[in-house]
Amino acid sequence: MAEVTEAAVREAADALVAAFGAHDTAAYFARFAPDADFVFHTTPERLPDRASYERLWARWEAEDGFHVHGCTSSDARIRLSGSTAVFVHDVSTDLELGGSRETVRERETIVFELRDGVWLAVHEHLSPRAE
C-alpha cells in the first residue's frame, strides 16, 4: 500500500512522466483515474475523463503523426493534503508532429489522489512556459 509521503507521490509522478516520455500509452493512461479530467492549452475544450483524452491521443497519432520521443521534469514541488497531492513541475517534451520534431517547454500541475493504495492522477493542467 502506498504511503502518504512526498516520496510516494514523487514515485507516482516519475512513473507517469517516464511512461509519457517513452510513448508507452498503456502505462501512461493506467496512471490516471478513469474520472480524471484534463485542461490543455493546446485544446479548446476541457477533457472530462481519461477516455476522452485517450481518444484525442489516438486522433493525434492517426492524423498528426504524434509521437513522444522523450520527456524531462524539473523544478518539481509537491504539496500533500490528506490523501491528495498537488505536483507542479516544468516539463520539456521532445515530440514529433507531422514528421517534424520539436521540443516543447511547458508547466504542468497534476493532482494525485490515493485510491485503493495507489496514487492515481485525477487532474492535469498544462500551460505554456515562458522562456
Rank of each mutant, 00 (worst) to 15 (best):
M1Q: 12
M1N: 13
A2I: 11
A2H: 10
V4L: 13
V4G: 15
A7G: 12
V9M: 04
R10C: 03
R10V: 00
E11Q: 14
A12D: 05
A12R: 10
A13H: 11
D14V: 08
D14F: 05
V17H: 10
A18T: 09
A18H: 01
A18F: 03
A19H: 12
A19I: 02
F20A: 10
G21K: 14
G21Q: 11
A22C: 02
H23Q: 09
T25N: 08
T25P: 08
T25R: 00
A26H: 12
A26V: 04
A27R: 13
A27L: 02
Y28L: 00
F29D: 06
R31I: 03
R31E: 04
P34G: 12
P34N: 11
P34C: 10
A36H: 02
A36Y: 01
D37V: 03
D37N: 14
V39L: 11
F40N: 13
T43L: 04
P44K: 02
P44D: 11
E45P: 08
L47S: 15
L47C: 05
D49P: 00
A51R: 09
Y53T: 02
E54H: 00
E54V: 05
R55H: 10
R55L: 02
L56I: 12
W57P: 11
W57Y: 09
A58L: 08
E61D: 10
E63I: 07
G65L: 02
F66W: 12
F66G: 13
V68T: 07
C71Q: 06
C71N: 04
S73Q: 05
D75V: 09
D75C: 13
A76C: 08
A76D: 09
A76L: 07
I78V: 14
I78C: 10
R79K: 12
L80F: 01
S81I: 03
G82Y: 08
G82D: 12
S83W: 02
A85I: 03
D90I: 08
V91Q: 15
L95I: 04
L97A: 15
S100V: 00
E102S: 15
E102C: 15
E102G: 14
E102R: 14
T103A: 09
R105M: 11
R105G: 06
R105Q: 03
R105K: 10
E106W: 01
E106P: 12
E106D: 03
R107D: 06
R107W: 06
R107M: 00
E108S: 05
T109A: 05
I110V: 01
V111Y: 06
F112N: 10
E113S: 14
E113L: 03
L114Q: 03
R115D: 04
R115I: 08
D116A: 12
G117K: 00
V118K: 15
W119A: 13
W119Y: 02
L120K: 13
L120M: 09
L120E: 13
L120T: 04
L120P: 10
A121R: 10
V122A: 08
H123A: 04
E124N: 14
E124K: 15
E124Y: 11
H125G: 07
S127I: 07
S127C: 08
A130I: 01
